[in-house]
């Protein structure tokens, strides 16, 4: 059974004088134990999607259309009570910069155990601490450091504790929003290793959000590339990395530097970067290509007609009309 099914989701932010669409007609689904990575530049709407899954959108944002179904139930029609039963117990989240939000005056293992006790009030504190210790072991926090205070931890250790806190209730789905940004390179490598290992060990489904496609490629089975609030290409890791179809995906991959000596041929983008946030109201625009301002393969056709999803394989689809002949290259 599908664990999470998002269909046609659009989210808008109310500003003083207008409504801005941050997420536009996004659909995807996630099977249990699978990992899906969202990759895109800042402002592409990937964080907003993550927040909306837990109904944690800021006050001025609202779901304009579409539905989010978790285990077959619509998240946005749940009562507060049943929503609380899902949050953290079934869907947990690692927030951006969460490691700075640890309580500085409480021991780390107690903080993590507390997250467990809140959701399982009948559990004894001793059991909760034992479970915390077990989890700390698997995220790689040495035993003599379990009862330290946050300021005694390095950034990498804090992030490990945050991961443990997210996993403490054994959720079915973990949403990780840029969990390795702002970490040291080496620490980032270690954290990614931990996330990968834990995901396999606990067979947990995961949505991994990052601006860095190489990081996403490291942990995810499937990748969705976002641009301007839309998913513009989605597919399995190998499909996206080896046969990228959308011009933006290709550009993203070409600009991602690697150690091998492939030829770096990417024309620089000189056009002004505007209009990746579209205003609501003009329905005509609705299915236009979001990448139209920066695409180097643009044709007159692109601006005139709405884009359609092209299905390239059972798992690989791309939101571009201009693909057919192009793929053979």
């Amino acid at each position: 059974m599908t664990l999470l099914d998002v269909s046609n989701l659009s989210i808008g932010y109310r500003l003083r004088d207008r409504l801005i669409k941050a997420v536009d007609s996004v659909s995807f689904s996630l099977e249990p134990g699978k990992t899906l990575g969202f990759v895109g530049e800042s402002g592409s709407g990937k964080t907003t999607i993550g927040m909306s899954l837990l109904r944690l959108l800021p006050e001025n944002a609202s779901v304009l259309s579409g539905s989010i179904r978790f285990e077959g139930r619509d998240v946005y029609s749940l009562s507060d009570e049943s929503l609380r039963a899902i949050r953290w117990k079934k869907i947990a989240m690692i927030f951006q910069a969460a490691m700075n939000a640890l309580n500085p005056v409480q021991r780390i293992n107690e903080q993590v155990a507390e997250a467990l006790l809140i959701h399982h009030p009948k559990m004894s504190k001793r059991d909760a601490l034992a479970r915390t210790a077990q989890l700390f072991e698997s995220v790689g926090i040495p035993e003599n450091r379990h009862a330290d205070y946050p300021h005694q931890y390095s950034g990498g250790m804090k992030q490990r504790a945050i991961i443990a806190m997210a996993l403490i209730c054994q959720p079915l789905l973990l949403i990780a929003d840029e969990p390795t940004t702002a970490l040291d390179v080496i620490v980032q490598g270690q954290i990614l290793k931990v996330i990968r290992a834990i995901q396999q060990e606990m067979a947990i489904a995961m949505i991994f959000i990052s601006h860095d496609i190489s990081v996403v490629a490291d942990v995810c089975h499937d990748i969705a590339v976002m641009y301007g609030g839309r998913i513009i290409e989605a597919g399995q890791r190998s499909e996206i990395l080896e046969t990228p179809a959308h011009p933006y995906t290709r550009m993203l991959l070409a600009s991602n530097l690697t150690l091998s000596d492939h030829s770096f041929d990417m024309p620089t983008v000189h056009q002004s970067r505007k209009a990746n946030i579209r205003h609501l109201g003009s329905t005509k625009e609705n299915d236009m290509c979001p990448f139209v301002c920066h695409c180097r393969q643009i044709t007159d056709h692109c601006q005139a007609t709405p884009q359609k999803w092209m299905v390239l394989s059972s798992s690989h689809r791309v939101f571009c009309n201009n693909i057919a002949g192009d793929l053979t290259k």
Partner: peptide, 25 residues
């Protein structure tokens, strides 16, 4: 070597080996 190892696998040079010079703790 540890810096090279820490790069996500997509960025690695396929010709290079994994060095594994970093202690777990």
């Amino acid at each position: 070597k540890a810096l090279l190892d820490a790069l996500p696998s997509y960025c690695q040079d396929p010709a290079c080996t994994f060095h594994n010079t970093l202690l777990e703790s």
